[in-house]
Amino acid sequence: MRVYLEAARMSYRCYRTYGAATLAGLATNGFFGLLRSSVFIAFYEGRPIAEGYTLDDALTYVWLTQGMIMPLFLWGWLEIADTIRSGSIASDLAKPLDYFGFWLGRDLGRAAYHILYRWLPTILIGLIFFGIGLPGSALAWLAFALSFLLAIVLSFCLRFMINVVGFWTTDVRGIMGMVLLFVNFLTGFLVPLEFFPPALRAIVTELPFAAMISIPNKIFLEQAQGRDLLLLLGRQLFWVVVFVGAAWLLLRSATRKLVVQGG
């Protein structure tokens, strides 16, 4: 266990050294938050509520999702694919630790950094300039924290699997771009899923992508209480189990391929 914690700490420290990039990234997140907020404010003109969202809800959603971009790291991540290409993966796999767990540890360390230096400041900007709403109770915060963590693990599993596909094709970059940008839409990042046409919405809410952004967002907005809240968390947990299992299986057949063909 210690080694995974250590991996997380190392990765956290590593990201800390990119101070200026963090600042520029925050400015970009903030700017896009501003643009998206302006669009919602203009849309809501003379209309108090739409699809269950008040303007305040919509703005909260904007700043929350802007803040989640970096912790979820949905914009492409090819570290493992790069080690496959360079061949250094062979020695990584030979190390006496769980490969998946090692990278998960690293990714959680990275996410911790991004929560502290990207999510938190972004939420603060939203709070100060747009008066966004925050969860009102400790329980709601706790539920959100849990949901956020599950979303990060889920996002990691997805990225991990795309990277591992690198064992079979050299085209991971293209696949990553394709999948993740589609994910952008299906997670409810670009528009809350509640605004989708009913037929499309019925499908999209059943997909695992909803568990990455839409569900944490609903919980942050306190749109679900009691049994509903538990159901949402249960749904996320279900997908985490499925994704972790799938990632394991994929990694196993990839390692077998490596052993048989020598990469």
Partner: peptide
């Protein structure tokens, strides 16, 4: 000279 994490970068700016 550089360094000092995000806060260091902010300070330099």
């Amino acid at each position: 000279e550089r360094g000092g994490g995000p806060l260091g970068a902010l300070r330099r700016v």
